[in-house]
Nucleic acid binder design. Structure first.
Length: 117
RNA sequence: UGAGUCAGCCAGACAAUCGCUGUGUUGAAGAUCAAAAUUCAGCAUAGAGGAAAGUCCGGGCUCCCCAGGGCGAAGGUGCCAGAUAACGUCUGGGAGGUGUAAACCUACGGAAAGUGCCACAGAAAAUAUACCGCCCGGUUGAUAAAUGGGGUCAGACUCCAUGCGGGGUCUGACCCCAUUUAUCAACCGGGUAAGGGUGAAAUGGUGCGGUAAGAGCGCACCGCGUUGUUGGCAACAACAAUGGCAGGGCAAACCCCACCUGGAGCAAGACCAAACAAGAGUCAAUGAGCUAAGCUCAGAGUGUUGCCCGCACUUAGGACUCGGGUAGGUCGCUUGAGCAAUGUAGUGAUACAUUGUCGAGAUGAAUGAUUGUCCAAGACAGAACCCGGCUUAUCGGCUGACUCAUUUU
């Protein structure tokens, strides 16, 4: 089972700040991913998303990218245990198609997994 | 059949698996004396738009110690009538314009209240003016013709003499002078707004008469103004009389007239919990009456967009301002000017009645992914308190009504 519920999300600004304060970083042309081992050792991966209106103009595109990231995260969260993760989306990402973005995310998740080991 | 106009509708479909949000329900945890919030799991069910968009108008709703009256300011609207909760929206009508037509477009009140502006070009851009042109008169000059006068030459006739020669009359040619007329040129003084050229725009249009040339100078028709009659609720239209014509454009320039408008917004606002923290600063004026508590009156302060009145609150363990801190949870939050069908009234927008129906409610923010099949190959684009509009974006398809053209009957 690979669900994606409230437990797997970063909800408050405190939780976001926690990640920003001492984050490790992985990035490519479209995404910057910040991650940190979570405080209480929840044995869960948690995801937060940041898309600015500046970088992604239309609400439709923002929703699309969020869905793609969540879907990808859902598949990989077993590997990403104990991490709080914030994904920042860069300019121009809305131009790319779904399959390409999935591939790029796959590679980044693998990187994080390797770094932590 | 093709081209087009208007109105309405749809917004890829189906299946399997995995996943997200709400609601209902079952079970477990909470969890015990008992219950609830809450969390997790299973099942069932619902889950973006015609524009959800721009935030351009109009409302509902909420708060601001009522938004009550007068004057002013600011902003908006602008043919008429109706619809509506309301509107800058819609419907019907009028006027002007576009199109063969169905139809469509229009910020469509006032330029005779006043002020201002009208680039370039042009004579002149607003008390009309006079560049070219046309016409009249005068002066000067040139040319031509006619008449008159003078001169020279030639011829004819005639007289004196009769040899040379001289005189006179007539005719013709040439020259000079004067007068008159005509034409042309220049200048001066008037008349003219027909024509020319400029411009986005030039002082009613066309025709005939008229005139020195022209001109509403006169007439006919058209346009315009005024008055009246008729039709219409009205905007306005038709007809008649009358005036010879007031009158350039711009009011999306100021302005004038009529009408409308309190402000801020769901991060509105209410409650619960936590936190700063028994924070700092500013303010002054009280008086009179009643035995007193307290109340009343006057004054003062604050608020009410500027002023006046009115109103409300305060007048001392009070009011206001500033600073600090918090954006955790619950409510608001989706049943509403709702949607659908039928009937009635109305040209219509719409209203009323009956019956049926419930169609997202997130909050670091839900509709997606994978695979397969089919086709016309999927555009613009994502709810955030809710409605009514407007505007903008948009692949394509369907339905109905109407118009034009062509063909056939």
């Amino acid at each position: 089972m690979s669900k994606f519920s409230c437990q797997n999300r970063l909800l408050t600004s405190d939780e976001y700040d926690y990640v920003f304060k001492k984050a490790k970083k992985v990035s490519d042309d479209n995404f910057t991913i910040l991650f940190r081992e979570n405080e209480k050792s929840l044995n869960l991966a948690r995801l937060g998303l940041i898309l600015s209106k500046k970088n992604t103009k239309h609400a439709v595109d923002r929703n699309r990218i969020k869905r793609i990231i969540r879907e990808s995260f859902r598949h990989y969260k077993a590997i990403l245990n104990n991490f709080d993760i914030v994904v920042l989306v860069k300019k121009g990402t809305d131009q790319l198609d779904r399959k390409l973005l999935r591939k790029k995310l796959d590679i980044l998740w693998e990187k994080i997994s390797n770094l932590s080991n």
